[in-house]
């Protein structure tokens, strides 16, 4: 039984990283009052750009570590640009955020697939960034394999939880972001440029989403396909509600979903289940829906002006 528990924890922790990065980015978006349903499309673009640079340099063979890092950074930059593009649509032109987000999702997914076919083609992979074994600690029983033999980006993802928490709750910029999402008119009367702050939040959040996609293509699957992201962008948006717009809550949501996913895989692998595998595959998604129902009753409310455009010339 211990083997079983260790197995599903060992598999579950890396699984959470992509969701965690994307959800943290979406948390910042939503804290500023912008609801970005296009997270999935941004992740797809990040996944493509992230693997494009190492592939161009070294094909499927190994490349220097900084080439992979350059791929991740390029993905983040492209993600930020997508965030700004989305900002132009929803902040400058005041388009409905839900519909614009769906448009961004379709645009990002389609563009990434088309660029991939044009520049790379086929099911090509990259050597990518492999897991590292931290000396001494990785040899510890049970936790060594679980916590100290992971991909470097897993540590980056977990490190981003306190970083985003600090940015949102301990810095002047974080205060401005939260003010723009809660009471933008008051923020505006205090001299805060609401549009500029929302652009900045979108750029940051989308860069995180793209980094999540790049994690999948460069560090995890080490390949790009049109279906690589596979709905994780939408799950990331749901996890922000689950986590009540708090980085720590989002961490809990990402871990719960990923551990449920790892659990269903382990249950299948060990043949423990009396249920058909289709039910097990559904388990993590059903769990998220059920938990969201209960979390929805929480007194902790989200940004009051989430999804609402701000126009300083209008009275509302």
């Amino acid at each position: 039984m211990l083997d079983f528990i260790v197995l599903f924890l060992t598999v579950g922790i890396p699984l959470s990283s992509a969701l965690l990065l994307a959800s943290l980015g979406e948390t910042v978006n939503q804290r500023s009052g912008v609801f970005n349903l296009g997270c999935e499309g941004v992740m797809c673009m990040g996944a493509f750009v992230g693997m494009f640079i190492p592939f161009m340099v070294g094909g499927s063979g190994p490349v220097a570590w900084y080439v992979n890092v350059a791929g991740l950074l390029a993905a983040a930059v492209v993600g930020a640009l997508f965030g700004l593009l989305f900002g132009v649509v929803v902040i400058k032109f005041g388009a409905p955020q839900g519909i614009a987000g769906i448009g961004l999702q379709l645009f990002g997914t389609g563009l990434a697939g088309s660029l991939y076919r044009h520049f790379i083609g086929g099911a090509q992979g990259v050597a990518g960034i492999n897991s590292i074994r931290i000396p001494i600690l990785s040899d510890l029983p049970i936790v060594g394999k679980m916590l100290f033999s992971c991909n470097p980006m897993v540590y980056v993802a977990f490190l981003m939880v306190p970083v985003v928490h600090y940015i949102l709750f301990k810095t002047p910029w974080g205060l401005r972001v939260r003010a723009c999402g809660t009471f933008p008119r008051a923020a505006d009367s205090m001299g805060i440029d609401v549009s500029k702050t929302r652009y900045q939040a979108l750029a940051f959040g989308s860069a995180m989403a793209a980094l999540a996609g790049a994690y999948l293509s460069v560090c995890y699957a080490k390949i790009f396909t049109d279906t690589l992201v596979g709905g994780r962008g939408f799950i990331a948006v749901a996890l922000v509600y689950f986590g009540r717009w708090s980085p720590v809550g989002v961490l809990g949501g990402a871990m719960l979903f990923s551990l449920a996913q790892a659990l269903q895989l382990a249950v299948q692998a060990y043949g423990f289940s009396a249920f058909p595998y289709e039910f097990l595959v559904m388990l993590p998604y059903v769990l998220v829906v059920v938990v969201l129902v209960f979390v929805g009753k929480s007194k902790h409310v989200g940004p009051a002006m989430l999804g609402k455009p701000f126009n300083r010339e209008m009275r509302t």
Binding site: L7, L265, A269, E278, V281
Partner: peptide, 25 residues
């Protein structure tokens, strides 16, 4: 033998998860 299904033909990441589970097991 250990057997897990992704429920899809094109879930590359899911197949990777299963592969990782088997290797760890």
């Amino acid at each position: 033998y250990m057997l897990s299904w992704t429920g899809s033909f094109s879930d590359t990441v899911g197949a990777g998860d299963i592969g990782n589970t088997f290797i760890q097991a």
